[in-house]
Design a protein around this nucleic acid. Structure first.
Length: 134
DNA sequence: GTTCTGACA
DNA sequence: TGTCAGTA
């Protein structure tokens, strides 16, 4: 049985802050930079999905590895809009290159040995339960 | 109480 | 990046 839809934006910025270890200030900042796109309630409050949390953790890792904002933005492009049925447009040559870059980055993250000594791993471990299946 | 935007250091 | 102001 599939648990919560990973793209259901129901998390407040405060919760995401606790889940990722990122300050509320930085979460909003990364949005300003175009690294993420948040769903907004009628009251204009931000709402995030589990996918977004994973995205933030990836961003966090990349920044820790000193990737430039431009590289991160490119790797994570296009921004996945929560709740919106992500329609796959025409995969342009550029997008295909971006996918390769993203895979390259993820590969690096997988092989990184320093992960063992990292602090926030516990949070990610707990988060991983949402991704167990598949 | 929590979040939002803008602004300052 | 943190924090403060004035709101919603």
């Amino acid at each position: 049985m599939d648990p919560v839809p990973r793209d259901m934006a129901v998390l407040t910025i405060g919760i995401v802050s606790q889940l990722t270890g990122l300050s509320v200030r930085m979460i909003r900042y990364y949005e300003d930079l175009g690294l993420v796109v948040s769903f907004r309630t009628s009251g204009d409050q931000r709402r995030y999905s589990i996918n977004d949390v994973a995205r933030f953790l990836l961003i966090k890792d990349m920044i820790a590895q000193e990737y430039t904002i431009a590289q991160i933005r490119k790797a994570l492009h296009p921004p996945v809009v929560p709740t919106q049925p992500t329609v796959q447009p025409t995969p342009t040559e550029q997008e295909l290159n971006d996918r390769e870059l993203l895979e390259d980055i993820r590969e690096q993250l997988r092989n990184r040995k320093e992960r063992m000594t990292r602090e926030p791993t516990l949070i990610e471990g707990q988060l991983s339960q949402f991704f167990r299946k598949k």
